[in-house]
Amino acid sequence: MGDVDRRPESAEALVRSLYAEHGRSLLAYATRLTGDRAAAEDVVQETLVRAWKHADDLTSGKGSVRGWLLTVARNIVTDRARARAVRPAEVAEIADRPPVEGDHSEAVVNSMVVLDALDQVSPEHREVLVELYYRGRSVTEAAKELGVPPGTVKSRSYYALRALRTVMGPGAEVAR
């Protein structure tokens, strides 16, 4: 952390730019995990503060910043759920929320790796995957959205998955 510019004005600039670019994504994700907007805001706040403290890792150009932030947010939610779980009085409350699956130290690497890989495939490939997979659209809907024929959506989605495989390497495995 030695090289990080610790002056308040640069800290502020970093936080502002992270917030402007990733705030919506982070808050939406944290809101889904916690099921609570106020709790989600706390998680986002802590995530951004950690990002500032680890600005070296973040600005090294290695890896996806978005992936880093989402991973940290998820770890914070997991840690808080665990901290609450040791107090029996609040167990009922825990049972109501969506489980945060897996050991996060493993899953961490993966969501970052995949986001990274998605950054490396072409924008056309990436947008087709986002429409079909993450937004759950059909070929017909995605074709309308992207303004290309359905046949193009189909072939692009195929080549997008192939490209992803090339970037990830054939030996990659999902950590569980």
Binding site: E12, A20, R24, L27, L70, N110, Y134, L164
Partner: peptide, 27 residues
Amino acid sequence: EFLGEVPPEAFLDGPPTDGDLLLQRTL
């Protein structure tokens, strides 16, 4: 399966709506 590792929210951009207080608190 790899794609499933990434949450769908990863593809939202920009600042949150109504998040000004959050930004101020963080700053």
